[in-house]
């Protein structure tokens, strides 16, 4: 479905990621592990078209998306759930969700249907649909950010550290929701520091270090890998 081939990204002279190769197959959950600044977010920004790769190419459903603008990439079916759960704080919950459906803005009926699906997945958003997004708690804001991304009916969703800063119980719920979204047919590429939780729902993973992928393998293999266990799972 998605494949990154030898992708490098530079900020000026600084190389943020180098020769990255990632394969995501339809229906999978794939996780990117690594410390802050290892290059996970840069990878996401590059897939969604906000950064352009210096070398290498990105293919989605067989065709290159490197030359596409970010809005065309969303239309093609890849959506990034905003980093740091960035919302439009003064807009209401529902207005935020409607912004997510921007690429389908002419298909009113379809949007309504998707909105119902999102409310079904996150009932709390329905309850608070008329409140300003800025007034939500951290967990609810994350749900809204994910819900808004779902409004574009993506085939592939990029999730950048959805669990960061959330209480353990909420994290658990969040991962359940992610699994649910995946079972409903959306392929997921997930960046996480919470390796244990992420690997337990993922099919496979890549481990980043200083802009390079140092280990890759199925979840099972990564769980069994001594270095990964030490560095990210803490056992």
């Amino acid at each position: 479905m998605l494949s990154l081939r030898d992708v490098s990204v530079q900020y000026g002279n600084y190389t943020a990621i180098q020769n990255i190769n990632i394969e995501v197959r339809s229906g999978e959950i794939v996780v990117l592990l690594g410390a802050n600044g290892a290059g996970k977010s840069t990878t996401f920004r590059t897939i969604s078209g906000l950064n352009k790769p210096a070398t290498g190419d990105i293919f989605f459903e067989g065709s290159s998306i490197c030359s596409l603008t970010p809005d065309k990439i969303v239309k093609a079916g890849i959506v990034q759930c905003a980093e740091d759960r960035k919302l439009f704080p003064e807009m209401s919950v529902q207005e935020n969700l409607m912004m997510g459906a921007y690429v389908h803005r002419r298909k009113k009926k379809e949007i309504k249907h998707t909105l119902e699906e999102v409310f079904e997945l996150f009932p709390i958003l329905h309850e608070k649909r008329n409140q300003a997004a800025g007034s939500l708690s951290g967990g609810q804001q994350q749900m809204l950010a994910i819900g808004r991304a779902l409004m574009s009916k993506p085939e592939l969703m990029l999730l950048d550290e959805p669990s960061i800063g959330l209480a353990p119980l909420i994290v658990e719920q969040m991962f359940e929701s992610i699994q649910q979204i995946n079972q409903d047919g959306t392929t997921i590429l997930l960046a996480e520091q919470n390796a244990h939780a992420a690997l337990s729902i993922a099919n496979k993973g890549y481990v980043y270090e200083n802009g390079n992928i140092v280990v890759e393998g199925s979840s099972k293999e990564l769980f069994a890998n001594e270095e990964v266990r030490k560095a990210y799972i803490g056992a």
């Binding site: 809005d71 921007y102 690429v103 574009s152």
Partner: peptide, 23 residues
């Protein structure tokens, strides 16, 4: 209108607007 909301979205964060598919 949605157009006005789009303007406000751009004011909020252009990157965010872009990543929602707004040109």
């Amino acid at each position: 209108s949605l157009t006005g909301k789009t303007f406000i979205a751009i004011r909020n964060s252009e990157d965010l607007a872009l990543s929602l598919g707004i040109s």
